[in-house]
Every structure is written in structure tokens, then in C-alpha cells.
């Protein structure tokens, strides 16, 4: 399984692997929104948590359709299915690799983008915490969506339609956590719910995704 993780990380960082694509997209969203909305600090800081979360969501989505589709096209998915690694473990590892190349860099770069969006100073630690807690769920839910649509031509669009509604809880609790944190209010409830969504999807979705892959490989 470590071999699979290392291979996916290596593939992502090689030419055409798509590493940095999501990051650049996230950056563009945070740069464009102030240009569109106008430079008033009050407006920007009020919408900052929501915009940053929506940006992170869409940035995650960008590279998801390649998660299993590339392996399906070149035949490695068939070979992995007959390998000693259980499919559930394979899905979990690929989700983890996706998080390491998208979610983690997004989390790391988010304070800089918070600055562009005039986020209130008290909100920075909460922004980083919320993204660190929430983005693993984005990768895992996305892996499930990618597994459902793996055999389809142009399945990426359908996958977005399937996955985005499932991102709603993470978006609500994540953005709420940052908003409350920035305004100095109590944060326990959204924090716990965000963590619960992530833990729940990490526990359940590898099994669901593996089952979807088995159906699609037939």
C-alpha cells in the first residue's frame, strides 16, 4: 500500500500529473473575487470564509475525475484488482494521495489567500484548522464519486454533479467554523460536526467506493 501511495505521489508530481493545478485555481478564485466584488474590506471579510471554502471545494474537484479514470484507461485498475491489496485499502490510499497533493497544499496556502480576502485576524487559525479537518472529507467523498463514474466517457461532469451535493455538510460546517472563529464566537459545534463528517466518510466510503469499482470493472 505504501508502494501505491508513493507511486501516486510520484505520478502527481511528474509532468502532466496535475500537482499545483488545484492550488493555482484556488489562488485565481481568491484573486478574482475581490476584483469582482470590489475592494471594501467590510464586504470582503464578511464573505471571505464562504468564498475560500467554495474555492477549496472546486479546486479539490478539478483533479478528482483522474483519480481512477487514468488507472482504468491504462489497465492498471484491473491489475490492482487482482493484486494482493484489498480494493478498500486501494481506495483509501488513493484518497489519501489525492489529499496530500490537493487538500494539504490548499490548507497550507490558505492564510495567504485569507489576507487577499481581508479575513479578520482572529479567523486565520480557524481557517487553517477548518481546511485541515474538512479537506480529507472532500478527497474521500470525491473518491467515491470517481469510483461510481469510472467507466464512463466524459464521466468528470457527471461526477461533479454527484459529488457537489455530498460536499454540502462539509461546506456548511467548515465555513461556519471560520465565520464564528473570525467573530470570536463559540466554535465547538461546527468543529465537532466537521470532524464527524470527515471521520464518517473516511470510515464508510472506502467500502462503498470499492463496491462501486467492482461493479464498474465487470
Amino acid at each position: 500500500m505504501i508502494a501505491l501511495l508513493l507511486r501516486d505521489l510520484r505520478l502527481a508530481t511528474r509532468a502532466g500529473g496535475g500537482f499545483g493545478l488545484g492550488l493555482a485555481f484556488f489562488l485565481m478564485v481568491a484573486v478574482l473575487v475581490p476584483l469582482g466584488v470590489g475592494p471594501e474590506a467590510a464586504t470582503l471579510s464578511r464573505i471571505a470564509p464562504g468564498i475560500l471554502w467554495v474555492g477549496a471545494l472546486l479546486a479539490c474537484l478539478l483533479s478528482l475525475d483522474r483519480l481512477f479514470a487514468l488507472d482504468f484507461e491504462d489497465g492498471s485498475l484491473d491489475l490492482l484488482a487482482t493484486a494482493p491489496i484489498p480494493l478498500e485499502g486501494m481506495v483509501a490510499v488513493k484518497g489519501l494521495a489525492h489529499w496530500l497533493v490537493t487538500g494539504l497544499p490548499l490548507t497550507a496556502i490558505s492564510p495567504v489567500l485569507g489576507l487577499l480576502m481581508h479575513l479578520a485576524p482572529a479567523g486565520y487559525p480557524w481557517l487553517v484548522l477548518a481546511l485541515a479537518l474538512g479537506t480529507p472529507a472532500l478527497s474521500m467523498i470525491g473518491a467515491f464519486g470517481a469510483a461510481l463514474t469510472v467507466g464512463l466517457k466524459r464521466g468528470g461532469l457527471l461526477m461533479s454533479l454527484l459529488v457537489l451535493p455530498m460536499y454540502v455538510p462539509t461546506l456548511i460546517f467548515g465555513a461556519d467554523l471560520v465565520t464564528r472563529g473570525a467573530q470570536g464566537q463559540a466554535t465547538t459545534t461546527p468543529l465537532l460536526f466537521l470532524a464527524a463528517v470527515t471521520l464518517g466518510s473516511a470510515a464508510v466510503l472506502p467500502f462503498a467506493a470499492a463496491q462501486a469499482l467492482r461493479m464498474n470493472l465487470r
Binding site: R7, R10, R14, E73, D74, S76, D78, T82
Partner: peptide
């Protein structure tokens, strides 16, 4: 105990 090899070789072109 089963190894499978099909039309597609499962190679990653950047490796």
C-alpha cells in the same frame, strides 16, 4: 495465486 495480463499493460507513461 492468479496473475492476470490483458490487452492493456497497466503502464504509467511518466514512470
Amino acid at each position: 495465486q492468479m496473475a492476470y495480463a490483458a490487452h492493456a499493460d497497466g503502464l504509467k507513461s511518466t514512470l
